[in-house]
Design a protein around this nucleic acid. Structure first.
Lengths: 238, 238
DNA sequence: TAAGGCAAAAATGTAGATTATATCTTCGGT
DNA sequence: ACCGAAGATATAATCTACATTTTTGCCTTA
């Protein structure tokens, strides 16, 4: 129905600042702590403890945990409670394999739909990433800034793929990959030469060389996997 | 209580049947009602009403809604409540496109990893599907049995792809596709000739003809999309 | 018509009751 | 004494009832 000049239209894009609830805050905090490995794989997330930790009541905590359980960032067992999921080399391999499949496809589509804005964003994201120094353990070892930019770069690559589903799936997997990186961060750091690899991916993408770009992207993931395989990252299961 | 002759032995390594909580029951019920279109797209899910409907308290309902929100089966707005997501032709197109991409890939991998058991399950699933009659509106129009078997068939095809991530993503999208089918069920029914299409997909897959199988699979999805496009399924947004 | 102000409605959160699970203890048989 | 079953206690998850906070709808006023 064409509503000409309707006064208080609720436009789809209207942004009313949504006041965040306690549940949402706990959700965000828990998410970070799980991704960063502060909460250990296998650990039980007891309601009372979590509530105390984040200064919230049992219900908001419970809601947050329920959300996270649907993202597979916590395991839920009825009447038994919530747990931080275990990590394993085997599931990491499956994760990387699937990332290669899906991000390749997303990159391919993105290149097919390339626009000026897409290219610009990639260049920008790369620039920011390459200017972020990797901090070694001696320096405090907080690489969360790098993680954020790293993720932004990979997101920029696939942003034009034309499927919010696919972007969502890739992001979900990025979350989990990030957790593996953080948990093994005690021993492994982002490689110094990753900048160069990212540059190569970017260049192939901007050149419109689909096959080369996909190749370089998946090579990078596989290389990172190999590095992690060399460590024992079986999340405390032994 | 104590059922004589049926003592609840706890065998070693036994998988103890998890007693379902109220939250989980509501979750399942809500999920079904949303997928089947009983709860209309765009509709507000008021806590009290939902609680009354399923005979539960506010908290279990809230937990169920939080889980569903992470699956994109309900929209959540802090302090504003929960809603059944809208449907639109545009997002259906994106959904179908993404399904084609991912299920093609999954099918390809499945065929590459084919085993006897995989083939058997496909044959079995096809048999069951083909023996399920489609009920027209006059006959009550409940095609949930068909939906279950239809889904089982497509799952059997991709079961050997080697990635639980990919299988999960495909299933998530199947849920949403199912909702589109149910909502437009007033006018559209599973096509009579879909049996034949499924047979062709199965045959190509069992023959190990990757390209043909993928082609037939995606053709089917695109054909179904075209059928739905001919209807107005824009969930009451106008 | 537009802004401001209320009151009702609804979402969210708290506290404590209830129920299930896990743990510990006891008892009978070997 | 040792093992396992049965029962009792402690712990923790879950749920209910109600308090608090925010939003929504409506009415008044400029």
């Amino acid at each position: 129905m064409a509503l000409i000049g309707q006064p208080d239209v609720k436009q789809a894009g209207e942004v009313r600042p949504e006041k965040v609830t306690a549940a949402t805050q706990v959700y965000g905090a828990l998410r970070q702590d799980i991704l960063k490995g502060i909460l250990k794989p296998g650990q039980k997330l007891q309601i009372d403890q979590v509530a105390a930790r984040y200064g919230a009541g049992a219900n908001p905590v419970r809601e947050a945990l329920n959300r996270l359980s649907s993202e597979h960032l916590v395991d839920r067992h009825d009447q038994r409670g919530f747990f931080v999921p275990q990590l394993s080399l085997e599931s990491l391999r499956e994760l990387v394999k699937t990332r290669c499949w899906l991000e390749s496809k997303a990159l391919e589509e993105s290149i097919a739909n390339r626009t000026q804005a897409w290219e610009d964003n990639i260049v920008l994201a790369f620039h920011r990433l390459s200017r972020t120094r990797i901090r070694l353990p001696e320096e405090g070892g907080d690489n969360s800034e790098w993680e954020v930019r790293h993720r932004a770069f990979h997101n920029a690559l696939i942003a034009a793929c034309g499927s919010s589903w696919l972007i969502g799936f890739c992001n979900e997997m990025m979350d989990h990959a990030e957790r593996y990186r953080y948990v093994s961060m005690t021993t492994t750091y982002p490689r110094r030469d990753s900048d160069e690899e990212h540059r190569l991916i970017m260049e192939a993408a901007l050149d419109g060389d689909v096959e080369l770009a996909k190749q370089r992207l998946t090579d990078q993931y596989k290389l990172t996997l190999r590095h992690l395989e060399e460590e024992q990252i079986d999340g405390g299961s032994e």
